[in-house]
Amino acid sequence: MRGISPAVKHILIINVIFWIGTLSIARGTLFENLFAYHFVTSDLFKPWQIFTHMFMHAGYVDTPGGGETIYFQHILFNMFGLWMFGTPVERFLGTKRFVFFYISAGLGALFIHAGWDYFQFQTELSKLISVGFDKESILQILNEGRLKHPEYSKWVAVLGDDGFQTLGRNFFGTLVGASGALMGVLVAFGVLFPETPLMLLFLPIPIKAKYFIPGILLIDLFSMLSGYSLFSPSNTAYLAHLGGALFGFLMVWYWKKNSFNQNRWN
Score class of each variant (00 low, 15 high):
G180P: 03
L128V: 03
F193E: 05
V191Q: 14
H149N: 04
K127N: 01
S179N: 12
L192D: 14
A178V: 13
V176S: 11
F164C: 00
G184D: 12
F119T: 07
F119G: 07
Y152R: 11
Q165H: 07
E144M: 04
L125N: 14
F189H: 15
K127Y: 01
T174S: 02
G168I: 06
E195K: 13
G145D: 05
F133T: 09
V131D: 07
V156L: 10
L186V: 14
G177T: 14
L107A: 05
F172Y: 08
V158N: 06
S126L: 13
A181P: 00
Q165N: 10
F189Y: 13
Q122N: 10
K135R: 13
I129E: 07
E195G: 12
D161R: 11
L110I: 09
E195A: 09
E124S: 15
T123Y: 11
K148L: 04
F121D: 11
R146L: 03
S153K: 14
I112P: 00
D161C: 03
T123Q: 07
G132K: 04
G108T: 09
S130P: 00
L128C: 02
F133D: 10
E144T: 00
M183H: 13
K135D: 01
P194C: 03
N170V: 05
V185D: 00
R146K: 12
V185A: 02
A178I: 14
K135E: 08
A178W: 10
R169C: 04
G115D: 04
V191R: 15
V187Q: 03
L159E: 06
F164G: 01
G160D: 07
K154A: 08
P150S: 07
G115N: 02
Q120P: 09
L192K: 15
D161H: 13
V158Q: 14
L182G: 14
E136F: 12
A178L: 15
E151L: 07
A109Q: 01
G190N: 06
G145C: 07
V187G: 12
V176T: 14
V131F: 03
G108Q: 11
N143K: 08
D161L: 11
L128N: 03
K148P: 01
G160Q: 08
G190I: 10
M183Q: 12
I141K: 08
V191Y: 15
Q140M: 06
H113V: 02
E151V: 04
E151T: 09
Q165P: 02
V185H: 00
D161G: 05
F111L: 04
A188E: 07
S153D: 06
P150H: 12
K154C: 07
H113S: 04
L125V: 11
R146P: 00
L139R: 10
D162F: 13
L175R: 14
V191L: 15
L110T: 03
N143G: 02
K127D: 05
S130T: 00
L110F: 11
L125M: 13
K154E: 13
L159R: 02
E151C: 09
L107P: 02
T123D: 08
H113L: 03
V156E: 06
F133N: 09
F171L: 01
L182V: 15
I138N: 13
P194V: 01
G145A: 12
E151M: 14
L142M: 07
V158H: 10
L142P: 02
W155H: 10
L147H: 01
V131E: 02
D134S: 12
V187A: 03
P150D: 04
S153Q: 15
L159Y: 14
V131P: 03
A181E: 01
G184T: 13
A109P: 01
Q140R: 10
G163M: 09
S130G: 00
